[in-house]
């Protein structure tokens, strides 16, 4: 059993790393992560120090990506902002997948009226404009990076719930599940030990893509006025602030937007690769 698992895993990684898109996507994500984690150490600048002399200076050797409207180094802010944006993306993905996975597993496992009720909740939640949920939750929770991650997660659990449910439904009647039943394993144990590992792959794919979307959602929340508070930079609030300066300091809009774009692209490519490899 363990041996077979290993075999399967090996061939999974083999498939993944022979998938062109997956490799490109992984390279992008690794590059972005390394830059954001190690970059601020190498490019030692404070992202919040205001420099009156550098107000609105364009890209130069001293400021590779220019300076912003308060003379802060744009590259430094991009790198710090990336940490925040990726953190928001990651936490909200975990929350969305977590809630969705649990709801979907319960619905699929119990079936009947519980399933019906839960799935109608999912239907309703999916039909409501997500802007609504975001706005409302933004006020319920205190401000802060973690809250924002939480809010995005809470508005993103419905698709994972559907996925998980259909996985559980398709796996439930299989022999090894029935066997576990027959030897008297309690339902939670079967769900946790037998079904979840088998149902998890589509969730991972969904999670990868959700993470990319969450980074975009963070930007949308900034646009609505509920983003990460200054002076902490995030790609979203940098992009929002840049809108006033599109003509006078176009680099402020180009770079953070490009980072969002590239990172989302990375997640989409990896998501594709995972789907094909699994």
């Amino acid at each position: 059993m363990a041996n077979g698992d290993l075999q399967e895993r090996r061939s999974f990684w083999y498939r993944f790393f022979h998938h062109r898109n997956a490799v490109i996507g992984s390279l992008i994500l690794v590059a972005v992560s390394v830059l954001c984690i190690a970059g601020p150490v190498l490019w030692a600048n404070n992202p919040t120090t205001i420099d009156f002399l550098a107000f609105g200076k364009g890209p130069s050797l001293h400021h590779l990506m220019g300076a912003d409207d308060l003379g802060r180094d744009e590259l430094t802010r991009i790198l710090y902002g990336g940490r925040i944006s990726i953190l928001v993306g990651f936490i909200s993905m975990v929350i969305g997948i977590g809630i969705g996975g649990i709801v979907g597993a319960i619905a699929g496992w119990l079936g009947g009226s519980a399933d019906f009720a839960l799935m109608r909740v999912v239907d309703v939640a999916l039909s409501i404009p997500s802007l609504f949920l975001l706005l409302l939750l933004s006020v319920v929770f205190p401000s802060g990076v973690l809250s924002i991650a939480f809010i995005i997660g809470l508005s993103n659990w419905m698709v994972p719930a559907r996925l998980m449910r259909s996985q559980v439904l398709s796996i439930k009647p299989r022999e090894y599940v029935e066997a576990a039943h027959a030897i008297g394993s309690p339902p939670w144990r079967i769900l946790l030990r037998t079904i979840t590992p088998n149902a998890i792959s589509p969730l991972i794919v969904a999670g990868t893509i959700l993470m990319g979307q969450a980074i975009v959602t963070e930007a949308v929340m900034s646009f609505l006025g509920f983003g990460v508070q200054p002076p902490i930079p995030s790609w979203g609030n940098m992009l929002t602030n840049a809108q006033t300066f599109i003509v006078s300091m176009p680099w402020l809009a180009v770079f953070p937007g490009f980072m969002v774009f590239v990172t989302v692209l990375g997640f989409n490519l990896v998501g594709d690769g995972l789907r094909d490899a699994m």
Binding site: T48, I50, D69, L70, F223, G225, P230, P231, T240, N241, T244, F245
Partner: peptide, 10 residues
């Protein structure tokens, strides 16, 4: 989302 206020407060 008001640029001069965000500049001022920072």
């Amino acid at each position: 989302g008001n640029p001069w206020r965000e500049e001022t407060e920072q």
